[in-house]
Amino acid sequence: MKKLLVSVSVLVTVALMIWGYYQAMYAAPMEATMGDVQRIFYYHVPNAMLAFLFFAISFLASLVYLATRRSNAPVAQAADAWALAGAEVGVIFCTVVLTTGPLWGRPVWGIWWTWDARLTTTLVLWLIYVSYLLLRKFAAGPQMQTLAAVLAVFGALDVPIVYMANRWWRTQHPAPVFGGGDDSGIKDPHMLAAFGWNVLSWAVWGLLILVFRVYVERRQQKIENARAAAALAAE
């Protein structure tokens, strides 16, 4: 039953990704000023939205871990697995954002990179979560989970500060497409459809990987607990 469920969800995800690709590359009309390069938008923006979602999952799970680590160990362990999985999948999505951004920026802005509000925030976010993953590698034993959760709190506090800092500084990134002002929003229904399908397919893909990762991490925790119990019994 479980195997069937996994197979079906993988198939659905792959089908959605293919459909999303078709929508972005063939169904959506060519953009008037930027041309075909604008199609990167269908990957760049959904990935950015989802990266923030996964980092938020990681942050909330870290808070749950800190709150329950002494009172409710099973919940805390589950929360830790979610925090790790959220950070890992978030870093992947953030990497896609940071790769597709310059690819678009070079032909449209004429430069690969600029120190602007969103770019800097995204890069700092990426750096913070890579350092979070590094800390998890460097720190040993159960204290690692606590230290990682604390770092996640610091990271989450940092991001709004970086964002505000850069808003005061300078900005070159296009204004928000949705909710940016009177002129914002996608007017062409085909473009909107392509965008919507890509948000959906990337979200499904990301959540699938997230659930897989949590499952693997939970297994890992079980193995470690069994090892610790065996070591105690042997003494």
Binding site: V124, L127, I128, V130, S131, Y132, L134, L135, F138, L151, F154, G155, D158, I161, V162, A165
Partner: peptide, 12 residues
């Protein structure tokens, strides 16, 4: 490890 976790947070 210290610079690796300190510098990203210290950036702003």
């Amino acid at each position: 490890l210290l610079p690796l976790i300190l510098f990203p947070i210290f950036l702003p």
